[in-house]
Write a protein that binds this DNA or RNA. Structure first.
Lengths: 329, 329
DNA sequence: ATGAAAGCGCTAACAA
DNA sequence: TTGTTAGCGCTTTCAT
């Protein structure tokens, strides 16, 4: 067992409250006393029990983070960002992976809610009514999704799509296909919305191939539709799917970028390593994590600060080998 | 704010102690009273405050998990396994990513130690003295590493290497190269040890190419040495490096598996999706996570149960397209 | 079987 | 500036 505040108090020859103050509100205690206390604490290897502190302050110093599937390469970066920022603020983070099982989520959050000051929900497919229920339990911040008045951090999908379309257009493409992710995902809808706007503004013809699982296999499955559609370029919901696309296109003998240009979204590590390397709309995922923590902590300090309640992170097209000049049909 | 035990007590017309008993030790309370209490709790949406409970029981119901780098595809699976098993046991898990910064680790663990019942350390490169210091702070279980008497979960690297060598030998290979990971990593040493044993037992000539960063670039960097060495087969420390190898070999015009057979270790998702698909020694990472939790919980209940203090998980060679019959030199 | 009371480690009034 | 007191929500003696 570790030293308690009382032991430190005795060691320093002061009362427990003085120790508490010396540690939490240093300027409310005499400099020399504080020195003595700090030294005693050091000597005993004392660190306050956060649970006990939380019991009285009502704040735990903990954060909760909920993700649907950690093996999806999008999420680890977000988690890292959250981690890093939380640690800087001396917060610890509870992580829960719902395993793509939205049903588990509510129970999970209930359990977590007691132990955290706030929750970061990074879960594009949770049903809206469930989210609403969650807000009753704790302070919530959402990543990669907007819902009602809940503070959120999202990516500038519209601008990303605009960049992608501009790039394709500059390469001479006139027809582009969209390989969508899950129908229920907020970012699928946001991205296709941005894409529609961008392509119509640019006078590009858009072929929406439909919804596919957000995995490699989803991209594989979409590839044949793409080929049949006769487009010269395609944008996929995420990089993993784009890699699936690349794989199947190669198997079909369709050369990238000679015959078809391919663009992904996300900039996962693997996208730079495929051949051809994948042109992609890069998302600052760790920044999103950091921003979410930032937002949450601000919210906890001043619950009524409505400003900055949604933060939009920039996206950046990364041009690599999978896009090239349009073939002359 | 959530309902407290006292409110439930009032609602049920009993004392707080009775509520506590009805929830924690149901058979110590009259069946009908218990019914009444449970109903009241349900009605109020009551859930015990774990921090308060922990304050008195000394157990938090929380687990800590420390990983060096979540963007390394090895770790998310382990984390998922830990998560799943922990949740089954009604434990919540704190996750900390040390960002490959061993120095941060000790501080992190100190902070975490107060809030958890035990810690799972999944960090192959932490210095030994630091680990020793950590054991003073909390109950520790290690994954993918052995150290002293600390309970650990590891993979059967030796058997995995044996399988890999047997496979290559059956394909007619006589010379195999090893592309090692970080010098300081326990599993690098364990794997090369297993490989030495396996190859000498099989009468295979082993060329150790040295130590490389455990990333794609590490594999890329090693490729030219491999080509120059004249081996017909190569085993890499992990799949990510093997993919780097594949990439550079292709750039050099060396055909896989025609000219060189390549084997990875880990079976990350991407390994099945490369072309050629990567033959790899599969590690049951989520099982490792589950086993670690299992071990930890057992340890917490019966601290002196030395049996099962180290668990070794089986490995399984997955033969895919990157290995083939040895070229006739 | 149940209730009253004490106390886990800490902070926040309130006094001094 | 410091100490005393009370109490956060819960469990656990100890009575009854």
């Amino acid at each position: 067992m570790r030293a308690t505040i009382r032991e430190v108090a005795r060691e320093a020859g002061v009362s427990a409250s003085t120790v508490s103050r010396a540690l939490s509100t240093p300027d409310m205690v005499n400099a020399t006393t504080r020195e003595r206390v700090l030294r005693a604490a050091e000597r005993l290897g004392y660190a306050p029990n956060r649970a006990a502190r939380g019991l009285i302050t009502g704040r735990t110093g903990n954060l909760g983070l909920i993700v649907p599937d950690l093996t999806n390469p999008f999420f680890p970066s977000v988690v890292k960002g959250v981690q890093a920022k939380a640690r800087e603020a001396d917060y610890a983070v509870f992580l829960a992976d719902t395993d793509e099982d939205p049903a588990a989520e509510v129970g999970l959050v209930r359990a977590l809610a007691k132990q955290v000051d706030g929750l970061i929900l990074c879960s594009p497919r949770t049903r809206e009514e469930e989210i609403r229920e969650l807000t009753a339990h704790t302070t919530l911040v959402m990543v990669n999704r907007r819902f009602g008045t809940i503070p959120s951090v999202v990516f500038g999908n519209a601008d990303g799509m605009r960049q992608a379309i501009a790039h394709l257009q500059a390469l001479g493409h006139r027809r582009v296909a969209w390989v969508g992710g899950p129908r229920t995902s907020w970012s699928t809808r946001d991205r296709v919305r941005g894409l529609r706007a961008a392509s119509s503004a640019a006078g590009m013809e858009l072929f929406v191939a439909g919804h596919f699982p957000p995995y490699f296999e989803g991209g594989v499955a979409a590839a044949d539709l793409i080929i049949a559609s006769g487009v010269t370029s395609v944008i996929a919901y995420n990089d993993v799917m784009a890699l699936g696309l690349l794989s199947r296109l190669r198997d079909r003998g369709v050369d990238v970028p000679q015959d078809i240009s391919v663009i992904g979204i996300d900039d996962i590590q693997m996208s730079a390593m495929s051949s051809p390397a994948l042109t992609t709309v890069s998302l600052a995922k760790d920044q999103a994590g950091r921003a979410a923590v930032d937002l949450l902590l601000t919210l906890l300090l001043q619950p009524d600060s409505v400003r900055n309640t949604r933060r939009e992170l920039p996206t950046q097209l990364l041009v690599r080998g999978s896009t090239g000049v349009a073939r002359t049909t």
